[in-house]
């Protein structure tokens, strides 16, 4: 069965099982590997992408749910790494191993789109589903504020 969707502005028609999680359609079929597999059960947030601007966990989202909709992955957040979150992440050297960071950034991007000046509690709440085993959380908080143009101390 074919599924029609737009990913990072490009139209695709995928001949896949409609129940296949969007994560695997992105990674295995479209070879967009910036989106990561970490748990497969919506527990870690490494797979977060946007569907029509909302953050979703692609590991538990059947690809059929993206039918006719606009999917954005980390590869599409900016053409050149110039999104304010990407810049803040690099400036503050947030990543350690880096594996969770696409999911962290995509989650934060959806937050800032809705709440351009989030409170500490809103940042924590929004990123509560994104695990980082390296423990970069304090820098993530600071980087979100920096990207939002808020004081970081």
């Amino acid at each position: 069965m074919s599924i029609r969707l737009r990913v990072n502005g490009t139209e695709h028609v995928l001949d896949v099982d409609p129940e296949m999680p969007l994560l695997w359609a992105l990674r295995d079929v479209l070879t967009l590997t910036g989106t990561k597999y970490g748990c497969g059960q919506a527990l870690c947030g490494a797979c977060v992408v946007h569907i029509d601007g909302a953050a979703v966990r692609s590991c538990v989202t059947p690809v059929r749910r993206a039918e006719g909709r606009e999917v954005m992955t980390i590869e599409g957040l900016s053409p050149d790494g110039s999104h304010p979150l990407q810049k803040a992440w690099v400036d503050l050297a947030v990543p350690q191993c880096g594996f969770c960071q696409a999911g962290q950034i995509m989650t934060a991007a959806a937050l800032l789109a809705k709440k351009p000046k989030p409170t500490d509690a809103e940042i924590d709440q929004s990123l509560a589903g994104n695990l980082c085993r390296c423990g970069t959380y304090t820098r993530i908080r600071t980087a979100v504020k920096k990207a939002a143009g808020m004081p970081t101390e």
Binding site: R27, T31, L32, T33, G34, T35, K36, Y37, T73, I74, E75, L77, S78, D80, G81, L85, Q86, W89, V90, A93, V94, P95, G98, F99, Q101, A102, I105
Partner: peptide
């Protein structure tokens, strides 16, 4: 020192074990 792989990590270009095709 600057984080060498930072720009690739934040854009999804960095290659981890399962990313090799």
């Amino acid at each position: 020192l600057p984080l060498l792989d930072g720009p690739d990590i934040v854009t999804g270009r960095a290659v981890f074990g399962a990313d090799v095709v």
